[in-house]
């Protein structure tokens, strides 16, 4: 059982060799927050604008059980 972290666009650089199709799997303890995961992966909080947990809008304090799909997006504003 592992958390799958899916990173969009410019956030991918924080995980060397990041595989966009598979995402990045990490083991976490139950009760770990989204903020804890970002800190562990050295992803700066201010670069993340959208947090989705298992397809639903979440936030920094959303608690994880350890088997979710966590998607993080930077501000997506080009047009």
């Amino acid at each position: 059982m592992a958390l799958t972290v899916l990173l969009a666009a410019t956030l991918r650089k924080y995980i060397p060799g990041y595989d966009a199709a598979a995402g990045h799997a990490i083991a976490i303890d139950q009760g770990t927050s989204v903020r804890d995961v970002a800190q562990r992966l050295l992803i700066p909080e201010h670069e993340v604008k959208l947090i989705m947990v298992n397809g639903v809008h979440g936030d920094w304090d959303t608690m994880l059980t350890g088997d979710e799909r966590l998607a993080l997006f930077p501000p997506v504003g080009g047009g």
Binding site: A9, T10, K49, P74, V76, G77
Partner: peptide
């Protein structure tokens, strides 16, 4: 609609019936 790099996002916002941009992102990026 917004795009960056090789990807983009989009959402229909229908006031009165669903979430707006600030439900999704309460504050504008710095």
């Amino acid at each position: 609609g917004g795009v960056i790099g090789t990807e983009g996002v989009t959402m229909a916002i229908l006031p009165g019936t669903g979430p707006c941009l600030r439900c999704l992102m309460p504050d504008a990026p710095t």
